[in-house]
Write a protein that binds this DNA or RNA. Structure first.
Length: 579
RNA sequence: GCGCCCGUAGCUCAGUUGGAUAGAGCACCAGAUUCCUAAUCUGGGGGCCAGAGGUUCGAAUCCUCUCGGGCGCGCCA
């Protein structure tokens, strides 16, 4: 509906050539907003105040000139100039009725924008290391990323979701050796389990299911022979070396890959149950096997962005705002994680994605600049990469804060959380606050207060509407939708006006939430819709004897049902017919 | 020490890119149903928007500083 006001204002401004110069610098649409208070009309524009300074004229005077040029029409009842120079628009009932009809006509598509070709967006999120099950922190990333993806799609952007699988490096060796040791335990070889290994019970599960075809059992004596004392990192290192020695590189790799794939598949399964799916599972290993890292480094070298110092190869990160230059190839010849990260983001651009969004933990903020620098160094724009940082989730059970450490195995999994509070409540709770706000997730509260969770409040509104139509059927009545649409003028109660107004905001809320990567706007909006509906429900009966009024009211609550269902769908929350 | 984020009602948090009188939920108090689901509704109390300056018609929002909290500053991944 905002477009009605935008159009009116633009038409009026076009008739004021003396303002042409000053208006060029601002977006007319950005000056228009919903009013907080109904006494200020439905929409207000501060355009006159924005223009006043540059034009050197009193804002109220400009406002008066603009209002005088507004074209006539049946969309607006009246326009007022208020306060320091606001232009307040009171839209006509007919304008709201039109919008209601649009909701019914478009149904599940209401609030969605037309598909566009550009920019193609690659949204990367979760990307948890495949060394154990997802925990509750990852759940926040999953819910947030999935919802942002839905919002971007709803606003027309072509978006693909990607999970970067960190399946290279030392942690994979630690995973492999952890599984190997657990497997040996099943064969009767038992040594004290290394503290630096992965100690979760899931390692035992993998070990007992693994295909070790032909691998010999070794004795505990041979395992412990020559192990260093003390430093647990050295112990695990020695065990890895021993595993490679005993099993051969290929044999060890076989265990490693099976373990990795087992965990990765479990993560994929977990997320799918949570309603979170990906277009791509991108393997870090594949960067090496396809020489993408070398290719990227070659590009950097060619552009003069690399230099040698102390036997290592450095990237000139300081040229791109980083506080120090960064090593990409170590003295020992190994490439750093940063090198593969540059190559990975370069590859994303090379695959044809125009805009890259990474959703990362807040602890990654330090490396945003340098990855952006890597992109810039290779000829792309630094701001092709947008990073949304997620603050941490602190998990509580009552007053006790749970520690989350994958290696220790003492953590609460996303699975457990979903089982306890349900997918709907979890998805909703995770995105109900801003990503840069810490999230305290108290499992006891989430369980004990689950009936007070706003998600049920919203779902209940949807179910209640469905129930009204069941009730209609029980009374052997039928809705005449055509008659309802013709009689929307009968909807004159304040609760009806309030609900219509709130419903009509939906497309604007979707756009706002998408543009700001801020799902919580949608969450709060849906609560408002539900509140307006419940208030209406309590104030008036829908199934009344007057069939014209009845049909009109049924049109209104049908529109409410559509908006709630559409919004919940974007949040990945179900819209039940009964509760 | 340097950098990023945060500080709003007793608690948990919103606050529409700088707008008009600061908003919800929970908790507390008082009410509402012969009728479509009471998982509901109505009303009430509750605030130095951490603090101090600045920018301007106008600041919770932007800038500077101070205080308090979280996180990060590897030839780790």
């Amino acid at each position: 509906m905002k477009s009605i006001v935008t159009q009116l204002l633009q038409d009026a401004l076009a008739n004021l050539p003396e303002l042409a110069d000053v208006i060029a610098g601002i977006s007319v649409e950005a000056t228009i907003e919903r009013t907080r208070d109904a006494s200020h009309g439905d929409f207000a524009s501060n355009v006159a105040m924005r223009l006043a300074k540059a034009a050197g004229v009193n804002p109220r005077e400009i406002a008066a000139n603009i209002v005088a040029q507004l074209p006539d029409g049946d969309q607006v009842d009246k326009v007022e100039i208020a306060g320091p120079g606001f232009i307040n628009f009171y839209l006509s009932a007919a304008a709201f009725h039109n919008e209601l009809r649009t909701m019914l006509d478009q149904g599940g598509c209401y609030g969605r924008q037309e598909a566009r070709k550009k920019p193609r967006i690659l949204l990367e999120f979760v990307s948890a290391n495949p060394t154990g099950p997802l925990h509750v922190g990852h759940g926040r990333h999953a819910a947030f990323g999935a919802t942002v993806g839905n919002l971007l799609e709803a606003t027309g952007y072509p978006v693909e979701r990607e999970y970067y699988v960190n399946d290279a490096g030392r942690q994979m060796d630690i995973l492999g050796v952890s599984v190997w040791l657990r497997w040996l335990e099943t064969q009767g070889t038992k040594i004290p389990f290394p503290e630096a290994g992965y100690r979760g019970a899931y390692i035992c599960d993998i070990a007992s299911a693994i295909d070790t075809g032909g691998i010999a059992v070794v004795s505990a004596e041979r395992l412990t022979d020559g192990l260093p004392d003390g430093d647990q990192e050295l112990v695990i290192e020695a065990l890895i070396a021993k595993a490679k020695d005993v099993l051969g590189a290929d044999g060890f790799d076989q265990i490693r890959q099976q373990s990795l794939e087992s965990i990765r598949a479990d993560i994929e399964d977990d997320l799918a149950e949570f309603g979170v799916t990906f277009n791509h599972w991108y393997s870090e290993q594949s960067l090496t096997t396809s020489n993408r890292i070398d290719d990227a480094l070659a590009v950097l070298k060619e552009r003069g962005m690399l230099y040698e110092k102390d036997g290592a190869t450095w990237f000139r990160a300081t040229d791109f705002g980083d506080e120090k230059d960064r090593v990409v190839v170590r003295e020992n010849g190994n490439k750093t994680y940063f090198a593969s990260d540059i190559a990975y983001h370069f590859d994303k651009r090379e695959r044809g994605f125009d805009h890259l969004i990474d959703i990362l933990g807040a602890d990654h903020h330090g490396y945003v600049t340098r990855v952006q620098g890597g992109l810039a160094a290779m000829g792309y724009a630094a701001d092709d990469l947008e990073v949304e940082l997620m603050q941490f989730v602190a998990l509580y059970r009552g007053n006790e804060r749970m520690q989350m450490s994958t290696r220790s195995g003492e953590f609460d999994t996303l699975r457990k959380l979903r089982a306890e509070v349900g997918n709907d409540a979890a998805r909703f709770f995770y995105v109900s606050r801003s990503n840069d706000q810490h999230l305290d997730f108290d499992l006891d509260v989430a369980k004990s207060e689950s009936n007070d969770n706003p998600v049920y409040y919203i779902q209940y509104a949807h179910a209640r509407i469905a129930s009204v139509f069941r009730q209609l059927e029980e009374r052997s009545l039928k809705q005449d939708a055509v008659k309802g649409r013709e009689n929307l003028a009968l909807l004159t109660e304040p609760q009806e006006k309030a609900l219509m107004t709130t419903l009509s905001r939906y497309p604007e809320v979707i756009e706002l939430a998408a543009n700001n990567r801020a799902p919580q706007h949608l969450v709060h909006y849906l609560r408002d819709v539900a509140n307006d509906f419940h208030t209406y429900y309590n104030a008036h009966a829908f199934i009344v004897d007057d069939d014209k009024l009845r049909d009109a009211r049924l049109v209104l609550i049908t529109a409410a049902k559509i908006v709630i269902a559409n919004g919940l769908s974007i949040l990945g929350v179900s819209a039940p017919e009964t509760m």
